[in-house]
Design a protein around this nucleic acid. Sequence first.
DNA 1: ACCTGAACACCGTTCAAGT
DNA 2: ACCTGAACACCGTTCAAGT
Lengths: 203, 203
Amino acid sequence: MNERREMTTRERILASAAAIIGEDGVTARLSVRAVAERAGVSTGSLRHHFPTQQELRDEVLRRVFDWMLPTSNIDDSTVPARDRLVACLRQVLVMTGTGPEARESMVRIMDSFVTAEQNESVRAAYLAVQSDSQRRMEEWLQVLAADVDLPEDDIPRRARFLGTVLNGLAMERALPTADSLAHVETEALFVAADAVLNPALPS
Amino acid sequence: MNERREMTTRERILASAAAIIGEDGVTARLSVRAVAERAGVSTGSLRHHFPTQQELRDEVLRRVFDWMLPTSNIDDSTVPARDRLVACLRQVLVMTGTGPEARESMVRIMDSFVTAEQNESVRAAYLAVQSDSQRRMEEWLQVLAADVDLPEDDIPRRARFLGTVLNGLAMERALPTADSLAHVETEALFVAADAVLNPALPS
DNA sequence: ACCTGAACACCGTTCAAGT
DNA sequence: ACCTGAACACCGTTCAAGT
């Protein structure tokens, strides 16, 4: 709505792209001509603001993620445990960014820990990060255990699993994506949260 | 090699498509005209055998995967469903290898899909691989649904989640590791399998 | 600097026409 | 049934030209 007045051309283009996604759903094609026509600008002008179509997609995606940013409070027992956990996990993912930023994050991780010579110091560096995030997730589960009645001694295993899921999602943020990444990611986080918060999960 | 003689048109088309992938790598574009020209047939003839380009890509990919992955016995109902699923997931992981081999796999994926210029063809190539493995996992869950009573319409979501977990595990194979990666990995696979095979998993 | 719109080189699909 | 090739409706990108 009101994509034409009192906005810069750039914003009008972004608003139109977002509107198309909003209407046609996540499978929207987001073609140059469709976006340009809707924004009331020429294809050339669109290209001037977004040199490639990918850059337009990245920016739209970045805003969508920013828009659904969480204010996570693990202690707030007025919201369901799974929602609190998902919010916390999402905040971890915020650090990896989206689009080009996510790819840079991943390349940096690769350079530091995979391509680099596998000596004791890089190993130690990675394990420090790893065990820190592991500890943090265990703390979250500990807090939630009050509401959900988790078996205490299974918390490390469940936290470890969450770490694996987050690694998978970070990787998928760097890889090429169907435009439905935000949706897919949210679903994965909820499936993981439900799995991990299920008291009856077999061991 | 010998794509022109003693083969049906259909096989010649598939061979040409496979040859293009073999030469240009998985990011090859596989356009109608390129495949048709190489196979020595018209675009119309190609369409006659493969009504859509997607069907051609799917068939080529299916053969490639079948060739490099023996199917484990998902049908063997004498073993528990979760064990069968874990066995299948493990077979996917076999492809990424371990140790230096796993690091090379990951670097190759990064080069092809993350570091590479993000254009339509690398995106399409990744999505083709992605959707093929997605389809494969949906098939597994479909088979297991007979024993575990899964809600049919939730299978895609669950399969997608398994994909994310496998991505996370593949990444962890490349990263430095604490001690028994095998142990941690097995636990993650079972948690994922139990989550996904739980009929009561909230949606 | 910002914008236009034609032009270019692609793409997948359709279809009347041949054998 | 199998095959041809032109035609159609797209796509993303480039660029000389305007303001």
